[in-house]
């Protein structure tokens, strides 16, 4: 085991996959000479050269489309969006081109590309730079959506994403790049579509992903002091969702809270709740509650921003409600 930051774990995954497969290349704004806006691609230009670590103009739609086109003819591009906020300009390419190509062509042409970059709320970046879009992409058949919460998962999931023959939306936590964690040495691959129990518990299941995993684990610690034994389930892959893991956990604990950074309306949690009520209705002892970001654009002011974000206290409160502890 080595202790790595989330950022370096991603860097290692990119380096190893580029070493392994000459068809893998990295393209995006500031990935080369600048070494990456968040330094995820540090050192890669030197190692692999400008044909495989490609700096682009600020033209998200354009280079996302270039990535899709290159993938259509067999390369395995990793397209970096400096943040997912900017990827809004490329949504047509992600939705209309990447996601649908295999289906429209009746299986003749696939898009084995990874689109990655930081997402979620940050610190005082205001409305246009602090938002979570995973539910948008998870809505689209043809896309996979992956969101690691730990350095080990970041490395293992990125390697799987690069090897996957489908377009993968890989959303990193903007606030997670500096967190440290143990990462297995050598070949470490985490399969897509498998959730991970980050904490075992028996009283309530807290379902979360990305930055919300840390929030949920903190909440679980507080709850443990109050003799509530919470299970924390990290989805890791939003789509395809590991419904089996979700259902097994809820069937065990009978109570569930879903935590996410995004807005409440039609969020990831809405899909989780739908699955739970449909599949294990008779296991539920309380309605499933959701902890989400506030239903507003992100404000700049620090206090308002705090109020807009999900945090451990909100999770604890929701858990108390589903446990009928008032």
């Amino acid at each position: 085991m080595a202790t790595l930051t989330y950022r370096d774990a991603l860097n290692h995954a990119l380096r190893e996959e580029m070493q392994r497969d000459p068809n893998v290349f990295l393209m995006g704004e500031e990935v080369g000479v600048y070494q990456g806006a968040y330094k995820v691609s540090r050192g890669l230009l030197d190692e692999f050269g400008p044909m495989r670590v490609v700096d682009t103009p600020i033209t998200e739609l354009g280079f996302a489309g270039v990535g899709v086109g290159a993938a259509m003819v067999g390369l395995r591009p990793v397209i970096e969006f400096m943040t997912w906020n900017f990827a809004l300009l490329a949504v047509d390419q992600l939705v209309n081109s990447a996601a649908k190509m295999r289906y429209m062509s009746n299986g003749q042409v696939g898009v084995p590309a990874v689109f990655r970059g930081p997402g979620g709320s940050a610190l005082q970046l205001a409305s246009q730079h602090s938002q979570a879009f995973e539910s948008w992409y998870a809505h689209i058949p043809g896309l996979k959506v992956v969101m690691p919460a730990t350095p080990a998962d970041a490395k293992g999931l990125l390697k799987s994403a690069i090897r996957d023959d489908n377009p993968v939306i890989f959303i990193e936590g903007e606030m997670l790049y500096n967190i440290k964690g143990e990462v297995p040495e050598g070949e470490h691959v985490v399969p897509l579509g498998r959730a991970d129990i980050k904490r075992q518990g028996s009283d309530v299941t807290i379902i979360c992903h990305s930055k919300s995993v840390g929030v949920s684990l903190k909440a679980a610690e507080q709850l443990a002091n109050e003799d509530v034994d919470a299970e924390v389930l990290d989805l890791r892959t939003i789509r395809p969702m590991d419904t089996e893991a979700v259902l097994n956990s809820v069937a065990k604990t009978h109570r569930c809270v879903v935590v996410e950074e995004g807005w409440p309306f039609a969020g990831v949690g809405a899909q989780v709740v739908d699955t739970i009520q449909r599949e294990v209705f008779d296991e539920l002892d309380a309605p499933v509650l959701r902890v989400t970001g506030a239903d507003v654009p992100m404000p700049y002011n620090k206090q308002l921003e705090k109020a807009a974000k999900s945090d451990p206290a909100k999770v604890v409160s929701a858990v108390n409600q589903v446990l009928y502890r008032d």
């Binding site: 209705f281 008779d282 539920l284 002892d285 309380a286």
Partner: peptide, 17 residues
């Protein structure tokens, strides 16, 4: 009213099961 023999009990799905 007489046709409803028993009042509806509010209960969680788990409790009902």
């Amino acid at each position: 009213r007489d046709q409803q023999a028993e009042p509806r009990v509010k209960a969680s799905p788990l409790a009902r099961r």
